[in-house]
Simulated scan of single mutants.
Amino acid sequence: MNILVSNDDGIFALGIRTLANTLAAAGHTVTVVCPDRERSATGHGLTLHKPIRAEVVESGFHPEVQAWACSGTPSDCVKLALGALLETPPDFVLSGINHGANLGTDVLYSGTVSAAMEGVIEGIPAIALSLASFNEREFQPGANFARALVDHLGNNSLTSGVLLNVNIPAVREADIRGVKITRQGLRRYVDLFEKRVDPRGKTYYWLAGEVMEEVSDPLDTWGGDGVLESAMTGVKAGVSLLPADVHAIKENYITITPLQYNLTSPSGLTLLGQWLAKLPGLTASLEQTHPNEL
């Protein structure tokens, strides 16, 4: 299969080289297009006000891998690959293997997840992969799993608009307990801005947040007035039996969490419908103000 590989850790990251080389050694046609330096936590940012440059990288990868270093963000890299560098669309977009977990609310900031999501937006099946440690550097178990997952999925495309977010525990391959399908959990951070002064006497701030708490069930944060709790009942019934990614990874399971770019909240739609039903005066007022738009 033809596979596009990107990341947010940059062209020199061990994770992307391990992933790309493993896939190439398995017989896949692999093209790497990733940032020329680390671009972690850039989310889905795009470069709009300056040119994007890309240069061929001729060392560090399997001989059959064609690699490019791009001056843009992770999302830029995938856009550029699909729009200019590749002759035909790939069968898969893989992003990673990221050095550090992308669990829970991390996915909102993650350049790794955003690069994969760019593939999904373009209608291409995509997988984001992360090693759940900033200290460990053993990426081969994750690369082996990525190879097996791609081979298993084959040409059976994923559900349209769905990205697989995969996190690999930072343990020996023999100590991985298995694979679990998970739901997105919630990670809380306490943001600490350290105030510093540069050599010219000007003040600057350095963000150094850390995880202080992991919440097992984000759905439990909803509720309070009965109406909202009722609106959430159907949602809870559908996902509450699945473990949260933040907990399953602690038990040394590989986690696979399906994500989507459509952020519309089904429970929110239900809730708003209930609110409007109880506020006929508001509806009538809107109809009088904009009769042709309702």
Rank of each mutant, 00 (worst) to 15 (best):
V65G: 09
V5F: 02
P218R: 12
G45W: 00
V150D: 04
T255S: 07
I176D: 13
A25N: 02
S133E: 03
G238R: 12
A146F: 06
S285K: 13
E287P: 13
E213G: 05
H152E: 10
V93H: 11
T31C: 13
G224L: 06
P89M: 04
N156H: 15
G268I: 11
H44S: 15
M232W: 11
L85A: 01
A20W: 03
V107P: 00
A101Y: 15
A101S: 13
L149P: 06
R147N: 15
E213C: 09
A143M: 06
S133T: 02
T203G: 02
A284W: 05
N2R: 10
N102E: 15
L164D: 00
I249G: 00
I254N: 07
F61E: 13
H152C: 08
L108V: 13
T88I: 06
T270C: 03
T270H: 00
S114I: 03
A244W: 03
P291V: 13
H62I: 01
F134W: 12
A231P: 05
A26M: 06
G15I: 08
P89L: 11
L272A: 10
A231C: 04
P89V: 06
L131C: 08
G10Q: 04
A284R: 12
F92P: 02
S6Q: 03
V78I: 11
R39Y: 12
A170N: 08
Q66A: 08
W222Y: 14
I124Y: 06
G238D: 10
S285H: 13
S71K: 02
V239W: 14
L23T: 11
V32L: 11
V162F: 10
Q274A: 14
K195S: 01
V166N: 11
H152N: 05
L242M: 03
P141E: 11
V113E: 10
D191Y: 13
P266Q: 10
A69M: 11
N2M: 08
C77Y: 07
R17V: 13
V235C: 00
P89S: 02
V197P: 10
E122I: 00
P199A: 02
L86T: 00
G100M: 01
A84R: 15
G111K: 11
K50G: 05
R39N: 00
G185C: 15
N7I: 03
P199F: 02
R172P: 01
W206K: 15
V113Y: 03
S6M: 14
I181G: 04
